[in-house]
Amino acid sequence: MDEKMTIGRLAAAAGVNVETVRFYQRSGLIDEPMRPHDGYRTYGDGDIRRIRFIKRAQLLGFTLDEISSLLRLEGSLACNGTRELAIRKLAMVESKLTDLHAMKTALEGMVAQCDSEERSEGCPIIQALIDD
């Protein structure tokens, strides 16, 4: 049975804060339930699943616009569209990894120059940043 809960209980169950739930509502990622006569909107288990989906997708690097696209594809037979989004995201991650590896190599070189006995008077890291 789908338990009805307030926004505070929903947020706690989904592992986010209330403002995150409200932000997702304003962004159109989750629906804002109608306000009943007693004044308290209630949410169900489906809302928890949807918020957890959004958070997992964000951890994988998907933007809110991309997540919105994924949510529109949810439940459809559009696996190819979902796959294409994932392929584009994977290519972006691979590009970032290449950039991070280049940064790591450059920083390792700068640190090694600092540790070198043959350095000049100034800081080799500062000098490398000025020269490049």
Rank of each mutant, 00 (worst) to 15 (best):
residue 84 E to Y: 04
residue 54 I to E: 10
residue 131 D to W: 03
residue 121 E to D: 09
residue 66 E to W: 02
residue 8 G to I: 11
residue 108 E to K: 04
residue 122 G to N: 13
residue 111 V to C: 09
residue 89 K to A: 08
residue 40 Y to S: 02
residue 89 K to F: 04
residue 106 A to G: 03
residue 94 E to C: 04
residue 64 L to F: 11
residue 69 S to K: 02
residue 106 A to K: 13
residue 32 E to N: 01
residue 108 E to G: 02
residue 59 L to F: 10
residue 105 T to F: 10
residue 47 D to P: 02
residue 67 I to N: 05
residue 85 L to T: 03
residue 13 A to P: 07
residue 123 C to W: 15
residue 12 A to Y: 14
residue 102 A to N: 10
residue 71 L to F: 01
residue 34 M to Q: 07
residue 117 E to A: 15
residue 110 M to Q: 06
residue 90 L to H: 07
residue 13 A to D: 13
residue 49 R to A: 12
residue 56 R to Y: 11
residue 126 I to S: 14
residue 64 L to K: 03
residue 29 L to G: 07
residue 123 C to K: 14
residue 8 G to D: 11
residue 85 L to G: 06
residue 39 G to I: 01
residue 118 E to W: 00
residue 118 E to G: 00
residue 47 D to Y: 06
residue 81 G to Q: 15
residue 108 E to Q: 12
residue 24 Y to W: 04
residue 14 A to C: 13
residue 105 T to C: 07
residue 1 M to W: 06
residue 99 D to P: 01
residue 74 E to D: 12
residue 33 P to V: 07
residue 106 A to C: 02
residue 28 G to E: 05
residue 81 G to V: 04
residue 120 S to K: 07
residue 38 D to T: 04
residue 65 D to N: 10
residue 80 N to D: 14
residue 98 T to Q: 10
residue 106 A to P: 00
residue 123 C to E: 14
residue 63 T to G: 15
residue 115 D to P: 00
residue 82 T to G: 10
residue 65 D to V: 06
residue 80 N to F: 08
residue 93 V to D: 01
residue 41 R to K: 09
residue 109 G to S: 12
residue 100 L to Q: 07
residue 28 G to Y: 01
residue 65 D to C: 03
residue 83 R to W: 11
residue 112 A to Q: 12
residue 51 I to Q: 08
residue 59 L to C: 09
residue 35 R to H: 01
residue 91 A to M: 06
residue 36 P to C: 04
residue 84 E to L: 13
residue 83 R to T: 10
residue 52 R to P: 07
residue 64 L to H: 09
residue 44 G to T: 06
residue 89 K to D: 05
residue 68 S to T: 00
residue 131 D to E: 15
residue 4 K to C: 01
residue 86 A to G: 10
residue 19 E to G: 08
residue 111 V to M: 14
residue 109 G to N: 13
residue 16 V to I: 15
residue 13 A to F: 09
residue 100 L to C: 09
residue 57 A to E: 05
residue 131 D to Y: 00
residue 119 R to I: 12
residue 126 I to G: 08
residue 92 M to Q: 12
residue 76 S to V: 05
residue 124 P to N: 10
residue 40 Y to K: 04
residue 20 T to P: 11
residue 127 Q to T: 14
residue 71 L to M: 06
residue 8 G to F: 14
residue 40 Y to M: 04
residue 131 D to G: 02
residue 81 G to E: 15
residue 28 G to K: 00
residue 42 T to K: 12
residue 57 A to W: 06
residue 22 R to V: 09
residue 94 E to F: 03
residue 37 H to W: 00
residue 13 A to Q: 15
residue 58 Q to L: 14
residue 99 D to L: 10
residue 104 K to F: 02
residue 112 A to I: 05
residue 103 M to K: 11
residue 43 Y to E: 05
residue 65 D to T: 06
residue 59 L to Q: 14
residue 107 L to S: 04
residue 116 S to H: 00
residue 126 I to Q: 13
residue 124 P to S: 11
residue 85 L to A: 06
residue 113 Q to W: 00
residue 57 A to P: 09
residue 62 F to G: 03
residue 25 Q to S: 11
